[in-house]
């Protein structure tokens, strides 16, 4: 199947796009729309989070509904780092990824023993467990979330300006996408996709299926943690609602709108959904109805776009 293949074809397009992205804050400032620089950072961060879910779901064929937990844990890890005086992004971000990855290792090790509906529900339940833990941990602000003291720095430079921060986020997203593209082409990527297509055969061939899947799950968790850490820095708050399962649902919707298993699926989905939210929410507070109907239409009348991948794995 042609997933993750498109990486090379789009190289030229990507370079042009990156140029526009780098200039975006200056353009927005020129138009007097500084507010939208933060909004653009938000889109990029969610693009990263959705891409990390896409790795687990589209690429690894693991239907996790607890992905928001890793996202939120990354945010909390960043907040705790900043509170304890660790401010350099080169320390904060890897630490956040490590913590999120570690939790993913725990959840994955337990959940990957199961299949199908069980896996979906167990990841969901573990995600909620993390949510309740954070909500009732008074040391981390409980339901209030944990406010950040300032933003992280990069090699001594502050990232307080919205433009500077946007560029930092852009760099993180760019590097992550590059990594994901390479991963898909590498041996690891080929094996994990083969496992998705036919697990039994790969097992018979002697591949340690469980370990491959677990590694994929952990990488996805760590990248979600990176996105979470960035979001906490953007909003200045690590909030428990980032871990809630509805957040997992939102990430899932992004991946599906964008295209499950396509390298740029998460990116596109985040862009579309967040812009849709910005526009529709201006019209009516009840815009969720519109979104719900749109999703239903996608599921019922555009099933190929949604489910090409999973239809294969289930037969």
């Amino acid at each position: 199947m042609a997933f993750y293949h498109s990486a090379r074809h789009r190289e030229a397009l990507s370079i042009g796009l990156i140029g526009v992205m780098i200039a975006l804050p200056a353009l927005l400032t020129a138009c007097g729309q500084e507010f939208y620089i933060g909004f653009a950072s938000r889109i990029l961060i969610f693009a990263l989070a959705a891409s990390s879910l896409n790795l687990v779901l589209g690429f690894g064929g693991m239907f996790s509904l607890g992905h928001a937990a890793f996202f939120g844990i990354g945010a909390y890890a960043a907040a705790i780092c900043l509170r304890s005086g660790i401010t350099d992004a080169l320390l904060v971000l890897p630490l956040a990824m490590a913590v999120a990855g570690l939790f993913a290792l725990l959840v994955g090790a337990l959940s990957l023993r199961t299949r199908g509906v069980y896996f979906i529900m167990i990841t969901l339940a573990f995600g909620q467990m993390a949510y309740y833990l954070v909500v009732s941990a008074r040391a981390w602000g409980g339901d209030d979330g944990l406010a950040l003291v300032g933003r992280m720095t990069f090699a001594g430079f502050g990232l307080h300006g919205e433009a500077a921060f946007f560029h930092a986020v852009l760099a993180c997203l760019g590097l992550s996408m590059l990594f994901l593209g390479r991963l898909a082409e590498a041996r690891f990527g080929r094996v994990i996709q083969a496992i998705r297509e036919n697990e039994t055969r790969m097992e018979a061939l002697g591949f340690p299926v469980f370990h491959y899947r677990l590694s994929c799950f952990v990488i996805g968790g760590a990248l979600a943690g990176l996105a979470g850490a960035l979001l906490a820095n953007l909003t200045g708050l690590a909030s428990p609602s980032l871990l809630q399962w509805t957040q997992s649902g939102t990430l899932l919707v992004m991946v599906i709108i964008g295209g499950v298993g396509y390298l740029y699926g998460g990116l596109l989905g985040a862009l579309v959904l967040l812009c849709l939210e910005e526009v529709l929410a201006g019209f009516t507070v009840h815009w969720h109805i519109g979104l719900g109907l749109l999703l239903l239409t996608i599921v019922l009348y555009a099933p190929k776009g949604v489910a090409a991948l999973f239809a294969k794995t289930h037969d």
Partner: peptide
């Protein structure tokens, strides 16, 4: 929700450029 509140306030300050603010119920 603290993060929804943050987003709204951000919009009030940077986009709508309000002069005065009020209304929040919960201390958190």
């Amino acid at each position: 929700s603290p993060d929804v509140a943050k987003q709204i306030v951000d919009k009030f300050l940077k986009k709508d450029k309000v002069d005065l603010m009020t209304g929040i119920v919960f201390s958190n």
